[in-house]
Design a protein around this nucleic acid. Structure first.
Length: 184
DNA sequence: CTTACGATTCCCT
DNA sequence: GGGAATCGTAAGC
C-alpha cells in the first residue's frame, strides 16, 4: 500500500532535517521513529555534494524524497533522505518499534539503531537502496502527527569542517541518541 | 597511478 | 578515552 512521500520537496536541508525528527521510517518492514538527523547542503564544506556531482553522490542531485546511501569507512552504510538538489538529511538514530525480532537477529548485541551505521545494519539497508524512492513501497517514511516536539540542536558528528553549523537535530528527552547533545 | 582520508563502530585500557 | 579495522572515493602528483 503505497502512500507516497509526505514532505514538501522545496524544504531546505535544515527544515527537512527538523521535519524528519519524530517521523517514522520503515525499510522493508523494520524500523521506528526517527530521533536524530543531520542536514547537509550544497554549499557546505562538510557535504559530499560540496564539490558537485560524482558517481558516488549522484543520488544527492536526483529527485527529492529518494534515498542517498553511501559506504562509510569502508565498512558501514549510511542512509540519507534527499531534499533539494545537492541537499540531504542523514538519519542518525531511531527509536526502533517495528520488526524488533528481525532487527535483533541482524544486530544480536549492542544498541539497535543508535548511530547511522548501526541502524542501516538493523534495517538491512543495502547499497542497492541508493536512489530508491521513499514512496511507501520498500522505503516508507511517515510524517509525525500532532504538535511539534522539542528538538535539540548541536554540531554535526565526526566532521572536521563547518563545525560551527548547528545542523544536528534530536528529539528531546529520548534515550537512544547516538551521542548526547550539548546543553541547550 | 598513488595516496590520504573519512557524515563509524567496536574493543581495549 | 583512545586506537584499530577496512576500502571506496577523489584529490594530488
Amino acid at each position: 500500500m503505497a502512500h507516497g512521500y509526505p514532505f514538501d520537496p522545496a524544504l531546505d536541508a535544515c527544515a527537512l532535517a527538523r521535519a524528519l525528527v519524530g517521523a517514522h521510517l520503515t525499510v522493508r518492514g523494520t524500523g521506528g521513529m526517527i530521533i536524530e538527523t543531520e542536514a547537509y547542503a550544497r554549499d557546505d564544506p562538510a557535504s559530499h555534494s560540496h564539490h558537485g556531482p560524482t558517481s558516488r553522490n549522484r543520488s544527492m542531485f536526483g529527485p527529492p524524497g529518494h534515498a542517498y546511501v553511501y559506504r562509510s569507512y569502508g565498512i558501514h552504510l549510511c542512509l540519507n533522505v534527499v531534499g533539494r538538489p545537492g541537499e540531504a538529511v542523514l538519519i542518525r538514530a531511531l527509536a526502533p518499534d517495528t520488526g524488533m525480532e528481525l532487527m535483533r537477529q541482524r544486530r544480536p548485541a549492542g544498541p539497535l539503531c543508535a548511530g547511522p551505521g548501526r541502524l542501516c545494519q538493523a534495517l538491512d539497508v543495502q547499497m542497492t537502496d541508493d536512489g530508491r524512492p521513499f514512496d511507501g513501497d520498500a522505503l516508507v517514511v511517515m510524517a509525525r502527527t500532532g504538535a511539534p516536539p522539542g528538538i535539540l540542536t548541536g554540531p554535526r558528528i565526526g566532521l572536521s569542517r563547518a563545525t560551527d553549523r548547528l545542523w544536528r537535530f534530536g528529539l528531546a528527552g529520548m534515550p537512544g541518541l547516538s551521542r548526547a547533545f550539548p546543553k541547550q
